[in-house]
Design a protein around this nucleic acid. Structure first.
Lengths: 187, 187
DNA sequence: ATGCTTTTTTATCATTTGTCAATTTTTAAA
DNA sequence: TTTAAAAATTGACAAATGATAAAAAAGCAT
């Protein structure tokens, strides 16, 4: 949380009054490993800032899981489509490690967008960044093999390999656990 | 362009003064089929609103083309990463049909974001929508076969099949032309 | 530590998709 | 219209990935 405020202050200049408003909008939540923050079918009413731990956004069609987003420390995550339209989510959100989150409700996001210019600029910037992050994944799926996607992930987001189980990592890469196991053994 | 202004007015209420500012920010451009609006290596300085025709954003690694985004009438497109960071683009933008565009410079986007609240709300909304659109593609790549992605595209964006060549469509779906040809013949 | 559950690995075989090459069809230019 | 270029189709084969099953390894609760 401190790091987040630092960043915000650095880039967008915060007045003390605004810092207070911001801090009031967030709520601290302790999470246990494997705990669900959102179950598919419900509306995503919060966006989460990870203070400590890892969370994942994923869907499960009964046959296979697809991990859409992994958020580590100082990253935001939610089931975005559900959150911005406040409609039922097709995705669930789950903690992968014990940790601490700061959650922000939909209403507070919209309020902050109206009332705190620094937050608004930050919000726009975050969505732009999130867009390019996910855009990169489309590039990967369009033009790379599973092995190439894995190698790219190692160099771009090493935490992904270090902190995630093969099962989750495989579902993020869009392949089966067995394929991932083979890819890893192929040097 | 009219339709775009209508939409903006409907959803965000525009004053006459603001309409003038907006109209001045856009510039009309006639485009020929196959014409390049941006060549990879250059900075994307404009975002394009398609008034008539179709444009595509794609990359070409020398070996294969990957079509990242197709924009039809009343849709916006640019090489997003390059545009928001004003850094050289790895993508090119090309017209697929003769048509008419309205282009908006990076500077004007940022200016409008500061000065026209209706535009700003619209801009945020567009990025949010663009995000969910591309997010849907990740879902497709993660959990569907090429045939399933093709079928989904037929029902969700029939224009894609109707107006694009197989070559472009295949590169959008992330498969070879040959595979697409076989998928189509499989009923 | 012990036993149970989950994850990971390994093997075999099936399916999907890619590659390469040739042919047909379509498009565009002279 | 004629001709050349580009795109689409088809076939044969190769490579990548999935499905299923079984065994080994790791994690977790008691």
């Amino acid at each position: 949380m401190e790091k987040f405020l630092e960043l915000l202050n650095e880039q967008y200049r915060l007045e003390n009054e605004q810092i207070k408003i911001l801090l009031n909008a967030f709520e601290k939540v302790d999470i246990q490993k494997s705990e669900f923050l959102l179950l598919a079918g419900n509306v995503a009413r919060k966006v989460y800032l990870v203070d400590k731990g890892v969370i994942r956004v994923f869907s499960d069609d009964g046959n296979q899981e697809s991990t859409r987003r992994i958020a580590f420390e100082n990253e935001f995550a939610t089931s975005f489509d559900s959150f911005i339209n406040q409609t039922p989510s097709s995705e669930s959100i789950q903690a992968l490690e014990e940790g601490i989150l700061y959650e922000l409700s939909y209403i507070n996001v919209r309020k902050l967008n109206e009332t705190v210019p620094a937050w608004r600029a930050f919000y726009i910037n975050r969505i732009e960044q999130a867009f390019t992050l996910h855009y990169g994944r489309i590039e990967a799926f369009q033009s790379m093999t599973a092995k190439e996607r894995y190698d790219a992930l190692i160099s771009q987001r090493p935490q992904m390999i270090a902190r995630l189980s093969n099962k989750v990592l495989a579902s993020y890469l869009g392949i089966t656990q067995e394929s991932l196991s083979r890819i890893k053994s192929k040097v």
